[in-house]
Amino acid sequence: MSNRSVLLDLVCAQRRQMKFLLALLIASGLFVGLSVLFIEPGDASFPILVVDIVLVVGCFVFFSTAYWYCTKRAMDE
């Protein structure tokens, strides 16, 4: 077994928890979206907002892709 296959097996074993994590990321995205309404580019907290947006969007893309792949992989087996 290759290292990639072992890593994918470990990630796909956590597929049930990914649903919960995706729900938390969606809620975090809504809160970040609400923050966008009140923070302007000149504010001191603007860099934190940008980092939050990058983290939430990046994590959402990664985990939604992983969930899709693991679901597809489980259906093929």
Rank of each mutant, 00 (worst) to 15 (best):
S35L: 13
F38W: 05
L30Q: 01
K19Q: 12
V11L: 14
C59L: 15
L25H: 01
F46R: 11
G42V: 05
G33F: 01
F20R: 04
C12F: 10
A44D: 06
F38P: 01
I48Q: 10
F62C: 07
L22R: 03
L10D: 07
L8M: 15
G29V: 06
I39W: 12
L37A: 13
D76G: 08
S28M: 00
D43M: 06
D43T: 04
A13M: 06
D52V: 07
V50S: 09
S5Q: 15
T71R: 13
S45K: 12
S28N: 01
L24Y: 03
P47S: 11
M18R: 00
L30Y: 01
L24K: 09
L49H: 11
E40Q: 14
F31R: 00
E40P: 04
E77M: 08
L25N: 02
R4M: 12
F46C: 10
V36I: 15
S45I: 15
L22W: 01
Y69A: 08
L49E: 09
P47N: 09
Q14D: 05
V51P: 03
C59A: 14
P41E: 05
A66C: 03
G29T: 06
G33D: 02
A66R: 01
Q17K: 09
F62D: 06
S2K: 09
F38H: 03
F63S: 00
Q17S: 11
M1T: 07
L21N: 00
S64I: 01
A74H: 13
M1E: 04
L8Y: 09
W68A: 04
V36G: 07
A66E: 02
P47W: 10
C12G: 11
N3V: 15
R73F: 11
I48C: 05
L21W: 00
I39L: 13
M18Y: 00
I39Y: 12
V56E: 01
W68C: 01
L34Q: 09
R4T: 13
S64F: 02
L49D: 10
C70W: 08
L7Y: 05
A27E: 05
Q17M: 10
S2Y: 07
Y67T: 11
M1I: 08
A27K: 05
